[in-house]
Design a protein around this nucleic acid. Structure first.
Lengths: 330, 330
DNA sequence: CTGAAAGCGCTAACAA
DNA sequence: TTGTTAGCGCTTTCAG
């Protein structure tokens, strides 16, 4: 059933029906007629047809590198909360860390499919940049900074710095590092830089032998910890760029009877749900993931309204959470 | 730029352009002309306009009760994998466990917005049923069984039964239970029934004083464990309907110096990532969440193609994973 | 194989 | 306020 059939059925004009669904002015009796007919027929206007004319899809494209990640799903939850309230739905693309899919979804979103885009990317290539430039709808980037775009990000450098410093302040002399791919500026490079700043500030030097790069998984953390500790090396503190990596590393330590925090302190980033139930509760840095999603969504909505050309960067701060894994008294 | 402007620019007819994008027959020279113009102009056809005519949105509506849950995001990952390959995108609605939002998204999906629907609901009301009946597109339900619909579900009863039995076989005599809302047939009721079957089969009786209902969170598991253990009660094994609940409960046990598994064995369900890094590695039941997503998506695709009226129920089996939390020798 | 033209279901400008 | 009607951008007959 289409609008004109329905209008006939309801005994009103087509425009009356259209106005009914678009909050236009309408006489009370027609409203009632329409509502009665609605009950009888179960008619629903077609969103696609509406989108063709009004150029509004009420859809926001969200591109993410992964679905089953606690941090990412918290961000998404924040996004969905704000957007849902404003009557927007999420067109969600999981790129599974595949750049090609990231690129192709950006392409997809150019086909008048969405009113705005939120991008949670890990690595930006030139291709990303050129595709983003072609975008005709508002774009907000969450978790990274990219010049020329509205961004919501975390203070990754500061978070890593503070956590590392916390451990060095407790007397650690031989810091180790398990980080992420440095092409990922936020979680990879910045957290590495924060670690290095703290180390240097403590009058120590960053020894590449004590630094590893892991994937974002427990098993990778486990693997890298093995390399770090099985090699005659004796770190007395270990900073991990994510809690997943830290949990994996601690698993290795437990299996090899390396005591936490006595032999080695461990610190992570992310404040994962499981941190406090680990065999040694993990010190971590809380990053405001959900808030990032909320603020990013708000930013997008306001840019979609005002279309301002001034781009803003919102950097969220962090909070250190101390637990047993760094609780060492020298 | 629209299709006719673009056709003019490319020097071909409108239908040639349309055919180009729809794999219709087209002379080689026109194809080339179009591709050249495409490079020049960056033209992209409008999906909404296409959807109006062809009634195909290439969108699948996915309704979930929560985003930041490991089990749910694994299901979603499976869904997105299969659907992505077939050129479908996900219109994702997070209902945040709010029935109203579940209902309203079902309404939303009736507006010709999607080609199919995948529903991950926890509780079915009559309103759900009547709305589902009005759906004009294919529907698949994952994680629950509902008569008259294609479903992919787990053997929740069996999983709970086996895990409980495992603990009783090790000599436990006073089993305790922390479950979920029984209105949730799968995770609530069925897991409860599985627990009860194992208890009765062991010649014991189910004592309501030893049974609690928790929310799906660690903190709720913690809270319920307090009620279970602070009350002169002395359970010697504890079955939890989810790993999150189990982790929270174990947190309480640790804080109160109740030893696992010596004083009380603990078993969960879900095979969460963090299980093996808990202070006592947690025995659990692996449920094939990702597979459920994959199979559910395939089911939807095939129903969308064939439109068969015969509905199928696919029940996935489970695997017991034994770890230290149940490793007791009597 | 091709192009002209008739819609898809809706919104919005316009005249009443 | 209303109803009529011309499109929105595309697909898909249909006649060539």
């Amino acid at each position: 059933m289409n609008i004109s059939e329905f209008a006939k059925e309801a005994g009103v004009s087509v425009s009356a029906v259209s106005r009914y669904f678009n909050n236009g002015y309408l006489a009370e009796d027609k409203k009632e007629k329409i509502e009665a007919a609605l009950k009888r027929t179960g008619y629903m206007p077609s969103y696609s047809a509406r989108a063709v004319r009004s150029k509004v899809t009420k859809l926001i494209g969200v591109i993410l590198p992964k679905l089953s990640s606690e941090s990412i799903s918290r961000v998404t939850e924040g996004i969905s909360e704000v957007l849902g309230e404003e009557g927007f739905e999420l067109l969600l693309v999981n790129t599974a860390n595949d750049y090609n899919r990231e690129i192709s979804s950006l392409e997809l979103f150019r086909q008048n499919r969405v009113d705005g885009v939120i991008l949670l990317a890990s690595v930006f290539t030139d291709l990303h940049r050129s595709l983003l430039a072609k975008m005709r709808v508002s774009v907000v980037i969450i978790g990274q900074q990219l010049k020329g775009y509205n961004c919501v990000c975390h203070n990754d450098e500061g978070a890593a710095y503070s956590m590392t410093k916390l451990m060095l302040n407790k007397g650690a002399k031989q810091p180790a590092f398990i980080g992420a791919n440095p092409d990922d500026k936020a979680a990879g490079l910045d957290r590495r830089l924060g670690f290095e700043r703290a180390v240097k500030e403590a009058g120590l030097t960053v020894d590449p032998k004590y630094c590893e790069i892991a994937k974002f998984s427990m098993s990778s953390g486990y693997e890298k910890a093995r390399r770090l500790f099985s090699n005659r090396l004796k770190p007395d503190c270990l900073f991990c760029a994510t809690d997943n990596i830290a949990a994996g590393a601690m698993q290795y330590l437990r299996e090899n009877n390396i005591r936490v925090p006595d032999d080695v302190m461990v610190g992570g980033v992310g404040d994962s749900r499981f941190d406090k139930v680990l065999y040694v509760p993990l010190s971590t840095v809380h990053l405001h993931y959900k808030t990032a999603g909320i603020e990013g969504a708000k930013m997008l909505l306001s840019e979609m309204k005002d279309g301002s050309e001034v781009h803003r960067i919102l950097q969220l701060e962090y909070e250190i959470i101390e637990r047993e894994s760094t609780d060492k008294h020298c």
